[in-house]
Simulated scan of single mutants.
Amino acid sequence: MTYGQPHYGYEARAKKSKTWLWITLTLVLVLIAGSVAFTGFVTPGFFKTKADTTSRATPEQLSQSFVNGVAENRASQLWCAIRSKRSYAFEQLMGASEGAQLSTPAHQRAAQEYSAAFTTGGQTVGIAMIPGEGGWCVRDAKVGGEPEPLPSVETRPAPRPDVKTGEEAGTKFVDAINERDIPAALSVLCEKVPDTTRDGVQQIIHGEARYTVAKTDVLTTAKQTILHLDGLIDGVQAPGRVETSDDGDGGPCVSSFAPDSD
Rank of each mutant, 00 (worst) to 15 (best):
T171H: 03
D262I: 00
G126F: 02
A222L: 14
T212S: 14
L189F: 07
V30Q: 02
I82K: 11
P147A: 06
A184P: 10
C137Q: 11
G166V: 00
V28I: 15
G251K: 11
D52L: 06
A117G: 06
S87L: 09
P147Y: 01
Q61V: 09
T225A: 01
K172G: 09
P252L: 06
G99P: 07
T244Y: 06
T49Q: 15
F173I: 14
P157K: 02
L102H: 07
G9I: 12
G231C: 05
Y10P: 13
V67C: 04
L227T: 07
A75E: 02
A75Y: 01
P131R: 15
T165V: 00
D217A: 14
I182Y: 03
D140S: 15
T124S: 13
T221W: 01
M1D: 03
M94P: 00
V67P: 05
L62Q: 07
F90E: 04
D246F: 03
T165C: 01
A214D: 09
P151A: 11
A185H: 12
D262E: 05
T26K: 03
Y88D: 13
T196Y: 04
G132M: 10
G166F: 00
G132E: 01
K142S: 02
D230S: 15
S17K: 13
L150D: 06
A116Y: 03
M129V: 12
A33C: 11
D181M: 14
Y211Q: 12
A33E: 04
L93I: 11
T216K: 08
I177R: 13
R83N: 03
T24I: 12
P194R: 14
V143S: 04
E91Y: 00
F41H: 05
T120N: 09
E148G: 14
V254E: 01
F41V: 02
P159F: 07
A106H: 10
V213S: 08
Y8T: 09
I130T: 14
V188F: 00
L78A: 09
A128I: 11
K215G: 01
L62G: 08
T216D: 04
A116M: 08
T221L: 10
A184F: 03
I32Y: 08
G135V: 10
K48T: 12
Q202W: 02
D195C: 12
A100C: 07
D175T: 13
D175W: 03
S255D: 06
K142I: 00
A14P: 04
M129Y: 06
L93Q: 13
T53A: 05
R83G: 01
L78I: 09
F46H: 11
P259E: 01
A238Y: 05
G132Y: 03
P131V: 12
V70Q: 04
A57M: 07
D162W: 00
K85L: 07
G122Q: 04
E154F: 04
D262G: 05
L29V: 15
D217P: 05
V201K: 15
A33S: 14
T225S: 09
F66D: 07
T19S: 08
L25N: 07
S63F: 05
V254R: 04
E243W: 00
P161F: 01
M94Q: 13
V163Y: 00
L150A: 12
E148K: 15
L219W: 04
D260Y: 10
G207R: 08
H107M: 09
K16C: 00
C137P: 08
A184L: 10
V36M: 12
T43D: 04
A222H: 11
P159T: 12
G144N: 11
F47A: 14
P44R: 15
I233Q: 05
A51D: 08
Y3S: 08
